[in-house]
Design a binder for these strands. Structure first.
Length: 113
RNA sequence: GGAGUGGGUUGGGCGGCCGCGCUGCCUUAGGGUGGUGAGGAAAGUCCGGACUCCACAGGGCAGGGUGCCUGCUAACGGCAGGGCGCGGUGACGCGACGGAAAGUGCCACAGAAAAGAAGACUCCCCCGCUCUCGAGCGGGAGAAAAGCUGAAACGGUGCGGUAAGAGCGCACCAGCGUCAUGGCAACAUGGCGGCUUGGUAAACCCCACCCGGAGCAAGGGCGCAUAGGAGCGGCUAAGAUCGGCCCGAUCGACGCUCGGGUAUGCCCGCGAGAGGCCACUGGCGACAGUGGUCCCAGAUAGAUGGUCGUCCACGACAGGAUCCGGCUUACAGACCCACUCCAUAU
């Protein structure tokens, strides 16, 4: 696993305003080149907005996404990626999420496939 | 056994595999290995404190809060015990529950009248006239009892009294004042007195007690830029700060000295605490004291997940963000204790 987590609010704001958007019924992805001065490894951030519900539901959505990325073993050098949870994310099954993640990464041009 | 009341505990268990935050040890710097890791409400942010800075938090006014009594507590609008009122057959529950003879305001509709008093639709008696012969009209004097309205009519019920009536007299009840007894007190019980003063204070208000402001993005340190910072000296005014106003205080030109502002860079603050658990002692209790024992999350886009097996009553509400004490709200079930009513058996 070579993905690190984006921590700066400024960089996350930039990702939201400039990122390339790829959507799916269960996951929304935003991608952009990692800014100068950061390491070459790919970076990721998991997002679950207040629209999804309470803290329990939002935490679960992010955990489920994190688990899916971990299972896929994917990595993307030189890119910042935001994976945004949809209302159905928290309750989707394992294989549906795996498919959704592959689809979204492919659209964004980050997949090895 | 059925129905119910009050209080407490718990909030899926066990085992693989792959992962996450913090942390100890080892290390050939790749990692290895062990420990530990959300709640009773972590929530709403409604109160109270600790802590930090503003000035070691000053006086008066204004403003806000609390409101039966006595305790407990760091403090509280919380809790405990007690009183009073209301509800329930009962266990028990609920109550902003100080003052309405300090003043002001308000009391819809209806009604003669809605609050320092008047009194009419009326009632009673006397006199005169009329007449369908028990009423009508006019005049005089008396009354606030009955009927009518209303949530509420200037105490209530009964007896006496009277032309009719009235605390006019009496008895009991309510209320007020006062005394005695019991109680720290709220209050309770009893005696005596003159006979009486509508409701509303989550209307203004009065009384008693309490309250400075802002908040962990507080506040501090490190690195980085040319003072908007700090210290000392310091005169007048404008001005600024001390939540508002007044008083009062401090800062305030400038000079000298030191050297550095920033939530979204990093570090500290940051978890040993009004701490948990177990005994004993005091207290009806809230709680306090003494001794023993344990160390129990510290993230920073924010750590507890995924998956498989298995068992069962098939798992509710729900996720820390400075900390603590409460209140309120949400919650599938399971279990325990005490008590009440009804039924039944011995």
């Amino acid at each position: 696993m070579v993905l690190s987590v984006i921590k700066s609010t400024r960089e996350i704001d930039a990702l939201f305003s400039e990122g390339e958007r790829s959507s799916h019924a269960h996951i929304l992805a935003l991608a952009r080149h990692t800014p100068e001065g950061r390491g070459p490894e790919g970076r990721v951030v998991f997002v679950a907005g207040k629209r999804l519900g309470g803290a329990v539901l939002r935490n679960r959505s992010k955990r489920v996404l994190r688990a899916a990325v971990h299972r896929s073993g994917a990595s993307w050098d030189g890119y910042d990626v935001a994976l945004i949870a949809r209302p159905s994310t928290a309750t989707a099954s394992e294989e549906i999420l795996d498919r959704a993640l592959r689809s979204v990464l492919k659209k964004a041009g980050l997949s090895d496939d």
